[in-house]
Amino acid sequence: MSEIEVLHEGAYLGLYKRGHWEFAQRPNASSCVTILPITDAGEIILVEQFRIPTQSRVIEVPAGLVGDEPEFKGETIADSAARELLEETGYCAGKITELIASPTSAGMTPEITHMFAATELSKVHAGGGVDGENITVHVIPFTELDTFLSQKQSEGYDIDFKIHASLYKAQELGLL
């Protein structure tokens, strides 16, 4: 493998070159986690937030970075997922199941996204994120999820594909 050349490095994103290929990487995080929360009543919990790169509100599964903050260095990937779930939705998971780990966007970044499902949920607080994330929490019956996502898309929201990947793997494992 050829050596990595640093083209530019900011606080949250770096641009690098390996051989002839340029790619982006987060200099402050080792990977990304997502978590699909499934209530005992068969509801799916999704989050909504404005994303600066797309300049749109995006409907997503709760997600976050692993190792991006000093107080969480050394945290396991599953523990990062549980923490992000609690911060963003206000729910604590009794059980966390690994779904899949996959490249986020293999042509652009070496980042791996680790997807989990959370079950046996208990509501601890209102959620909404930390540090001004301004996250809106949506609790949707699984039977109404397609309608909810279609409605949000028709209103101009972007729908993150990781919702569908998580749902597929959760169904495959019998969690839904």
Rank of each mutant, 00 (worst) to 15 (best):
I163N: 06
E98N: 13
Y168T: 09
G19S: 04
L173T: 07
A29F: 01
L36Q: 10
V33W: 11
L173A: 12
F23M: 00
T39D: 11
L173Q: 15
E120D: 10
E43L: 02
K123R: 15
E43I: 04
A126T: 13
E5K: 15
F161I: 13
E133L: 14
I38Q: 06
E87R: 11
L175N: 09
L167D: 02
I100F: 02
V124C: 01
S102M: 13
K73F: 14
L167M: 03
I38C: 08
G127N: 08
G10W: 00
E43S: 09
E22M: 04
A41Q: 13
H114F: 12
Y168S: 10
E22I: 04
P110L: 12
E69H: 08
D40H: 12
L145Y: 04
I59G: 06
A106K: 08
D79G: 12
K152M: 12
E9M: 11
L65M: 13
G94A: 07
G67N: 01
I52E: 10
L149S: 12
K17I: 05
K152P: 01
E144M: 05
L121E: 09
A78I: 14
T136A: 14
E22Y: 07
P27L: 10
V61W: 04
A63Q: 14
S2K: 08
I163V: 05
A165K: 06
R51N: 00
A126M: 12
G10R: 02
G127H: 02
E144Q: 15
T143G: 03
Q171M: 09
L173D: 13
A118C: 11
V137S: 04
F142N: 00
G94V: 11
E75G: 02
N134P: 05
K123T: 07
G90F: 06
S56W: 00
F72T: 15
E111W: 03
V58S: 00
S80R: 03
S105K: 09
R18N: 12
I135F: 09
L36G: 15
P62K: 02
Q153N: 11
P70V: 12
P37I: 06
A24S: 10
I35F: 04
A81S: 05
H138E: 00
E98G: 13
H20Q: 14
V58F: 03
C92E: 15
F148G: 04
E9D: 01
I35R: 05
N134T: 05
G174T: 11
G19A: 06
T147D: 14
D158H: 04
V33K: 09
V130P: 00
G174M: 04
N28Y: 11
G67S: 02
G129M: 10
V6L: 03
A11K: 14
I96P: 09
H125T: 04
E3W: 06
L85A: 04
S102L: 04
A101Y: 01
T76S: 15
Y91I: 01
H20T: 09
L99P: 00
S105N: 10
E120V: 02
A93T: 10
A106T: 02
Y12V: 10
S31Y: 03
G156N: 12
E48G: 13
S154G: 00
G128L: 13
S122T: 14
K95S: 06
E3Q: 14
L167P: 05
G129K: 07
I140A: 01
V61A: 11
D146L: 10
T34N: 15
L99H: 03
G67K: 00
A93N: 05
Y16N: 05
I35N: 08
